[in-house]
């Protein structure tokens, strides 16, 4: 049973650029999938289709039983509560502390303070930032800020974690640490991970499923694959 299913998906932007063309993907629950490709190959568009930041022009996108294409604007939040999103630029709120940056998610869902606290502490412990609860984002390194972003994404225990170039702004060592965190979330929580990246080292080292895109088209889908873009499927 697929947890995420893309059927003949097209995304054509208003300016006529085709970002995704006829893509078919099935992802099972608990999978760890890399989406690779060069800049402007359609990785980000594909990721955005999953959390309904973009709507497909044609085709079906189904995430955890929700038909994303048909989802009304005022229902999108239901989908997003099932999906944790990790961004390349972290998207933290500068005026909130680390704790508040994670807690405000649950706060906005209407949780009680007594429910929020243990969940936030748990998420921050998982990413190794328990000691920095009271720090502000500008006092943290890039890697630490990315950890806060991950903690925020997993605090509500989502079924899927979607990562858009999470290591794009980080050096190799820090990237490795971040990947360790993401891998442990996949293994320990059983969270499905979908990660767009163009970091060859990471893909080659992790030996996970790899989906390759070129000019919006699917050119490869390998179990335990490595980073290769020249080989057509």
């Amino acid at each position: 049973m697929s947890f995420i299913e893309l059927k003949n998906v097209y995304k054509v932007y208003k300016n006529g650029i085709t970002a995704v063309a006829d893509v078919n993907i099935n992802i099972k629950k608990g999978d760890f999938v890399f989406i690779i490709g060069q800049t402007a190959c359609g990785k980000s568009s594909l990721i955005k289709l999953l959390y309904r930041e973009e709507r497909p022009t044609k085709g079906q996108v189904i995430v955890g039983g929700i038909n994303v294409a048909k989802l009304k604007n005022n229902r999108v939040y239901k989908l997003r509560r099932k999906i944790g999103i990790v961004f390349q630029d972290y998207k933290l709120l500068p005026k909130l502390t680390v704790y508040e940056n994670v807690a405000f998610v649950l706060d906005s869902y209407g949780y009680k303070e007594s429910e929020i606290k243990p969940k936030v502490i748990d998420a921050l412990t998982r990413v190794g930032l328990k000691e920095k609860l009271r720090s502000f984002p500008n006092e943290l390194s890039g890697g630490e800020q990315q950890r806060v972003c991950i903690a925020r994404a997993i605090v509500n225990k989502p079924k899927v974690l979607v990562c858009d170039e999470p290591t794009g702004n980080l050096d190799a060592t820090t990237s490795k640490e971040i990947m360790k965190v993401i891998d442990s979330i996949n293994k320990e929580l059983g969270t499905t991970i979908i990660m767009a990246t163009h970091d060859q080292d990471i893909v080659n080292r992790m030996k996970k499923r790899v989906i390759a895109l070129k000019d919006g088209m699917l050119i490869g889908d390998w179990e335990k694959g490595s980073y290769k873009l020249d080989e057509t499927a």
Binding site: R81, L93, S108
Partner: peptide, 17 residues
């Protein structure tokens, strides 16, 4: 707007926003 964007992305309902 940043805050609102992030809230939308993390699944805050429109009413709450």
């Amino acid at each position: 707007r940043n805050e609102i964007d992030i809230m939308r992305l993390v699944g805050t309902s429109n009413t709450v926003i």
